[in-house]
Design a binder for these strands. Structure first.
Lengths: 290, 290
DNA sequence: TGCGATGTTTCCACTCATCGGAAAAGATGG
DNA sequence: CCATCTTTTCCGATGAGTGGAAACATCGCA
């Protein structure tokens, strides 16, 4: 009975392993990984061996594993993530200086917001998010902003399978979401009180790409007291306009609505994969059609 | 002759595909990827299909591919990268406010520096680096700082196969590197003039972990004029001390010299993989030995 | 509009990379 | 020293993965 294939692809197994690492479990031993991933020990061992050779995981002197720097390098080439992040960062710093609370940048992925950047403040209110973390689109101000870009039927699709409940105020029905989104469309910004934590209020505005499409949401998390949000919205709005300007400057590939910073950086030194390798291809066929 | 296996592992093929994306080529079509990776078109197509299902790549409406957000999410769980970065960011902002040039944070990976964060300034001198990019340890001030943690014979090993030349001042021999590193050890900081670009000077200091080991280098890139570097060094030194303090606070797992921020963040909402799944394991065997 | 060139997708018979139980080798802790 | 747990090595069986080929789609040009 040994050596029977499982019907699962290699890729998903590798990811099963990488996925068991989390912010709260960054260091794991072989047997922990095996148990958590549900893979047999010997299989886990073999796969980890190769993942380590490829530097996707690292092994520490005490034989525990952690995620490797190669993942970071790959992520750094993700346009619309690190690229957008780098463009937005200076403006976010401005926001953070003015508001002195958590400042966040998020994009949509499926039914979630993924946070690309977060600047925190020592005595800011609690914040539920981590860079790289995700949260339901329905449950955050940035999420509502991102949702406002979508047609009504897309909303219905997204939340057909329900909405995770974080607090008693997290919207649970499509109608509630639609109401919130409609308000965002009318006002041009989102204000979400206690959706993810009772004491927190999210305020967010859209960041638009060169063609007017919403590419990200920029927001802050402030205490949920009754304070007037309008000054905050003004600060966010100004920052968003600044980011949009930088985006236009960075924008170079008219064929690609989401090109963003993709072709912007021209480092003297390349990341691990040198573009030199591709000269013959370029030389032969002229320009890449990209 | 069809269907013959190649003797290459799945993982390396998948990575071959992911690796053809770069900061200067963020959007690629199937055939470009096939050519660049050296894989047959049909194979490339099949692999991309699965990579897309796993959200490691995304496909745009015009059928070109780009790296997906899942990579970003995985990278966000890399301790010592995003974790360290997040801890260091506030201090880096301080440095950048004072110096008004490029401020960079880098760690060692193999024979290279990998840059975890970079804050730029509008009218700063040219900079060769990108977040996520790498450069030879021998060719940067941060690199020299990181090298100063290693014993002499490790240096010999690292540069046995030569050093890439960026400018005429890039050190080329082991002796030159050793000289630079010795100076770093004596002074406690590194100053590198024109190693990577003739008009740029790098100034860097070490960032030490709770046990005194060097975990990162913090540096700036300033114009290569004759100006007195000591005030800059003082600013960097102060920032490094601040980062080290935050590191100590974040440091929670005594068994792990490199634990860093691994266990620090306790988000209310987890990243895609919920730790809830593992309750039975924890419940059964008590504490994870981690 | 038709035609050649290029890019994309589907198909499928042939294998070798992958599988995982088992057992050995190490670690840990009474 | 023994009992328990983790890590590593081994190896015969097998289906996941392979890639040439052909169909299909798209584009540019005359």
């Amino acid at each position: 009975m040994s050596g029977t294939r499982t019907g699962e692809s290699m890729l998903s197994r590798h990811l099963r392993i990488l996925d068991v690492f989390g912010v709260d479990s960054a260091f794991l031993t072989l047997s922990q990984i095996s148990r958590r991933s549900g893979l047999p020990v010997s299989t886990t061992h073999r796969l980890l061996d190769e993942l380590e050779r490829e530097r996707l995981v690292e092994r520490l002197p005490d034989r525990s594993y952690r995620l490797g720097l190669r993942l970071w390098e790959l992520a750094a080439r993700t346009p619309g993530a690190l690229g957008l992040r780098e463009i937005a960062l200076p403006m976010m710093q401005g926001v953070q200086g003015a508001i002195r609370q958590h400042t966040q940048l998020g994009v949509r992925d499926g039914r979630d917001v993924v946070y690309l950047e977060r600047l925190s403040h020592r005595d800011a209110v609690v914040s539920a998010t981590v860079v790289g973390g995700r949260i339901s689109l329905a449950a955050s101000a940035i999420g509502h902003v991102l949702l406002s870009a979508l047609p009504e039927e897309a909303l219905a699709d997204l939340f057909a399978s329900g909405i995770p409940r974080y607090t008693k105020r997290t919207p649970q029905t499509l109608a509630e979401v639609v109401a919130a989104v409609t308000e965002v469309r009318a006002r041009g910004h989102a204000i979400a009180d206690g959706l993810v934590h009772p004491d927190a209020r999210g305020i967010a505005v859209p960041v638009r790409g060169p063609e007017g499409e919403i590419v990200a949401g920029l927001g802050v998390v402030v205490p949920n007291d009754g304070r007037d949000p309008r000054p905050v919205v003004a600060v966010l709005r100004r920052a968003a306009v600044g980011i949009e300007e930088s985006l236009r400057r960075a924008y170079v590939a008219p064929g690609h609505p989401h090109a963003l910073a993709g072709a912007r950086y021209r480092p003297l030194i390349n990341s691990s994969t040198s573009s030199m390798e591709y000269f013959d291809e370029r030389g032969r066929a002229g320009q890449d059609r990209g």
